[in-house]
């Protein structure tokens, strides 16, 4: 019951925040000169003024700002995200078509970064001054400081152009025919490089934190006890210490969820991954306000869901939190 109440309160805050985000962004988009009619003209190689006026009238762009805002918010409150001017389709359709690709990329990258980060952190914590530890630090800081699009292109040159291991762009090879597993394998092949690229930023973050907490945990009394009762080193590290060191890392991962999504925008652009990121990118360039706002809406939802999931994972991992209700 307390859990449900907690969830309700959170959802309410989230809804208010979401509405504020939408209003703010709608206003910001409106402040910029020019509108989607101009980009429609661009994609067509020109248009005459009557035609532009016709487009503006059709989409209500000639109405006063408050009327446009009111209409939009009114629609959103009725779960109608509106109509994409640029793509001539309902925004919800456009987004739902792209959402699975983004979810796949974001969740696999997040999990990959988390697992690898924790593993690397735990390994280097055992010998903080060893060569392995320095190597891990070097690699993770490199991944953290390099811009994602650069990392992406570098990986493409290495693994697609020179080694031919992975395909260059997209999510699937349409010439591949076969059952579910064949298709899944094809998508997995396409996923590897974008996932590693996106994860590269976060591996550093997670491994640094895992290393620090791990070093702290390894000093604690219960670890000494475990050693004292003669448990093998590996057992102590990965069973006893690691599960204690994980909590802060998972918390951080939850907080980083929005960063992963914004990172996905760039990664998707580099790899032509057919997700929300590419759509967001194109819609911003096209000034397609309803689509951009729709994407913000869905991204916010993904972040909220991601955070809730993180909570659940923490509860499962840490009995101390499980006991608490809020």
């Amino acid at each position: 019951m307390a859990l449900l109440q907690n969830l309700l309160i959170r959802s309410f805050y989230a809804a208010v925040l979401l509405l504020a985000v939408l209003i703010l962004n709608f206003s910001l988009m409106h402040l910029a000169p020019g509108d989607v009619a101009d980009t429609i003209a661009q994609s067509a190689g020109g248009a005459d003024p009557e035609m532009l006026a016709q487009i503006r009238a059709e989409y209500g762009l000639d109405q006063p700002f408050l009327v446009q805002l009111g209409r939009y918010i009114g629609g959103v409150l009725q779960f109608d995200l509106g109509y994409s001017y640029f793509y001539n389709r309902p925004v919800t359709d456009l987004i739902l078509e792209r959402l699975p690709a983004t979810l796949l990329l974001v969740f696999t990258a997040q999990i990959f970064a988390l697992v690898l980060g924790v593993f690397l952190g735990a390994m280097s914590a055992q010998k903080p001054q060893g060569w392995l530890s320095h190597l891990v630090t070097f690699i993770s800081l490199f991944g953290y400081s390099a811009p994602v699009f650069w990392t992406g292109i570098l990986l493409l040159i290495a693994f697609s152009l020179n080694l031919h291991w992975f395909p260059v762009a997209g999510m699937r090879d349409v010439t591949v025919e076969g059952g579910f597993w064949v298709q899944a394998l094809d998508i997995a092949r396409h996923l590897v490089l974008p996932m590693i690229t996106l994860a590269s930023i976060f591996i550093a973050l997670y491994s640094r934190l895992a290393r620090a907490t791990m070093m702290e945990v390894l000093q604690s009394d219960f670890v000494r006890t475990a050693h004292a009762k003669g448990l093998p080193m590996r057992h102590v590290v990965y069973r006893h210490a690691l599960s204690n060191a994980m909590s802060p890392v998972v918390t951080l991962a939850g907080l980083q969820f929005s960063a992963v999504i914004s990172g996905a925008v760039l990664v998707e652009a580099v790899f032509s991954w057919p997700g929300l990121g590419t759509l967001a990118f194109q819609s911003i360039i096209a000034r397609d306000t309803p689509t951009i706002l729709g994407i913000l809406f869905f991204s916010a939802l993904v972040v909220i869901v991601g955070n809730l999931l993180t909570d659940q994972v923490l509860r499962m991992m840490d009995p101390r939190i499980r006991g608490r209700s809020a």
Binding site: L156, S160, V168, F271, S272
Partner: peptide, 13 residues
Amino acid sequence: ITDVSARTIAYEN
């Protein structure tokens, strides 16, 4: 494929 670098590599590949 919107990215020019990715298109270049895809042609080469």
